[in-house]
Simulated scan of single mutants.
Amino acid sequence: MAEDLLKELSNEDIDWMLAVGSQAEIAPGKVLIQQNQPLDALHILLDGALTVSLNQSDNNPLGRAFAVLEGGTLPGREIARLSSGEMVGEIPFIETYLPATTVSAKTKSLVLTIPKFQLIQKLQQDLSFAAHLYRASAVLLANRLEQMMNQLGNSTVVLSQSQLREALIVFAELQDADIDWLIAAGRVEQFAAGSILIRGGRPIEALHILLDGAVALNAATGEINPLTRAFSNLEDSQNQVLEKEFARLWRGDIVGETPFIEVQPPAVTVRTIRNSRVLSIPKWRLSAKLLHDVGFASRFYRVLGILLADKQQAIAQRLGYGRLTYSSGQSLDQSYANELNLNSLSQVALAGARFDWMLKRIGIE
């Protein structure tokens, strides 16, 4: 993790963080971030180890039953462990969530703390710094998400995501010029139901934006050798890898973003579940754009960070206190509706207008 952070930040970025931040040693057990409480700083773990846990009331029988089925205990279920180079408290800088987890010191640790107000100002004023920090956040969130997915194992929880939520994220954050460029650089492709957009274990060659239709995300069950998976995961193979669906995505979603934040091939297979059309942007074109257009890069990596934070929150809600909402009679769809009500209605309108405008530009009514 330390290498990931150092690779993303410049000397100027590090110097600024040292100038405005403060270093402190924290004792084992000290809480840095409290679940469901506002955050006022970004913390970078310089040395030591942190634990990420979910605190949940143990007075709900159904909640206890879910925890037993998924191998957890109540309260304070650990879902990830963080090493030096990790950042925590970054979600307020990329999204409006309250933290869904508690982060505390596992061992004696050294932490650099950067005040929220100063960091927000820097992100707004320095696009180069913003691009670096948002990309670093996306890389670390992707790694953390993988840890949380491993914790799920054979969980009874099935993740799903709101169509409006995803469209809001992508099209409210990008500018009109960004969407113009994506249209010009990409091509519209049609896929029949059951087609594979991305094959687990294989390199990704394009970023895909779903224009209509839907896809399922599938993860291999059990321990699979990556090379064996890449060469055996064929439709007509007798040794086809067994997979389990864990999420579905809809129009306005993006898939294939992992090459821009990590080097290893994805562990997830993306398959259409009905006839779908996508806008596919070749990896080489997008990589060149990110390298030469710092403004576009800052917005793109921010979008990726928000998408990853959203997925992390979804997992945490289903593993932790979010399930109490479900078990007390409120559906998961209602939970998402409440979340959407907290967002600016103008953002929703802007996102919808941009998406419709993009479809018309492409020639889809």
Rank of each mutant, 00 (worst) to 15 (best):
Phe171Tyr: 14
Gln190Phe: 08
Ile198Met: 09
Ala172Glu: 08
Glu146Gln: 14
Val170Pro: 01
Arg199Tyr: 04
Leu133Arg: 10
Asp178Asn: 03
Leu159Cys: 12
Gln151Ser: 08
Asp176Met: 12
Trp181Tyr: 07
Leu133Lys: 02
Leu197Lys: 00
Leu145Lys: 09
Leu182Ile: 07
Leu174Gln: 07
Leu197Thr: 00
Asp180Pro: 07
Ile169Ser: 04
Leu152Tyr: 07
Tyr134Phe: 15
Gly200Thr: 00
Ile198Val: 09
Tyr134Ser: 11
Ser195Trp: 02
Arg199Asn: 05
Tyr134Glu: 11
Phe191Ser: 02
Arg144Gly: 04
Ala177Ser: 15
Val157Phe: 14
Thr156Glu: 14
Ser162Leu: 11
Ala184Lys: 10
Leu168Trp: 02
Leu145Gln: 06
Val170Tyr: 07
Arg165Met: 13
Ile198Ala: 03
Ala131Val: 06
Ala172Pro: 00
Ala192Lys: 11
Ala193His: 07
Leu133Val: 11
Ala184Thr: 02
Ala167Val: 06
His132Ala: 09
Ala142Asp: 09
Ala138Cys: 07
Ile196Arg: 10
Glu173Ser: 14
Leu133Ile: 13
Leu140Thr: 01
Leu164Tyr: 06
Ser137Trp: 12
Ala177Val: 13
Asp176Gln: 14
Gly200Cys: 01
Ile179Cys: 08
Gln151Arg: 12
Ala142Lys: 08
Leu164Trp: 07
Leu159Trp: 06
Met148Gly: 06
Arg135Tyr: 03
Gly200Leu: 03
Leu164Pro: 00
Leu182Met: 13
Leu159Val: 10
His132Cys: 06
Ser137Gln: 11
Ser155Phe: 15
Gln163Ile: 09
Glu189Val: 05
Ser155Gly: 08
Val188Thr: 01
Ile196Gly: 03
Ala167His: 06
Gly194Lys: 04
Thr156His: 14
Asn143Pro: 00
Asn150Leu: 15
Ala172Arg: 05
Leu133Ser: 04
Leu145Arg: 09
Ala192Ser: 14
Gln147Trp: 10
Ala184Ile: 03
His132Pro: 06
Gln190Val: 00
Val188Leu: 01
Ala136Cys: 02
Ala138Asn: 02
Ala193Arg: 06
Asp176Phe: 12
Leu174Ser: 10
Arg199Gly: 04
Arg199Ile: 05
Leu168Val: 04
Leu164Asn: 09
